[in-house]
Amino acid sequence: MIEATVQLLATALALGSAYALTALGFVLIINAVGAVNFAHGDLVMAGGFVAVALSLLLPEGLPVPGLILLPAVLLTMAVGGAALAAVAYAPLRRSPPVSVFISTIAVGLILQHAISLGAGPQPRVGPSLVGDGLVDLLGAALSYQQLATIAVAAVLCLAVHTLLNRTRFGRQLRAAAQDPEMARACGIDLRITIGATFALAGALAGGAGLLLSNQYFVTPTDGAMFMLKAYVATVIGGWGRIWGAAVAALCIAVFEVLVAAAVSYLVAEMLLYLGVLALLMLRPQGLFGEAEGRRA
């Protein structure tokens, strides 16, 4: 019983920590520009494929290919995120937010089909973070991969936290997100902060893609599912609350795994959406409260 629970929790945390990175990037963009980036799930998928593509360039038999590739994936996807801002956000910054909704849906379509065309429709397996192996914890067999996934996600979250709270640039990002007018008056260039936020979100999506690609493979059609999870997490965590969204993403994964193990996947998914609806009815500000003044 205990070993099964530990096993389930480890799986849920590994999956959930990747979802948390996804939600983190998603909510950063919401804060910066007040618009939903519907291509975010596809960015995660693209990150997975970038990892797969780069791993083909590495010589065989390296001990930690995933860790070696992590900076390159983050960088590539940061560029991808900035490109997304340039293509799908910048021309529409004076339009209603829903225009960005559509433009990012279009970018998602482009990403999905370009990758399917280039890499083929089959699922791919990404580079492993660390060597294969199992650790025994209370009778449950936990793979190195799972533990490494959790660790890398935690490090990335910490890095984002440090960037936002301890650096001048991070404070500028947050200031620009909270009050664009005031930030502009203070001499902050919003184009730069918004571009940087998209880049950061892209990098986080790339990181999540890399983490997921080895354990859970990556398919060009995966984007929609990641996107949905991030969206739900953002609302549960309180619209615009960065860490609320990340924690909520983790909770969603744990909830889904535990309910699926106790009853069934179907019930887990149904309860998740019913839960979201109930939450919206009873506590529209999210579990952790809504970030102030973010409601459009």
Partner: peptide, 15 residues
């Protein structure tokens, strides 16, 4: 309001 309507209706659609 706003994004909550989007997610609530998306949730209903998923159901």
């Amino acid at each position: 309001e706003s994004h909550y309507v989007a997610l609530a209706t998306l949730g209903l659609a998923q159901l």
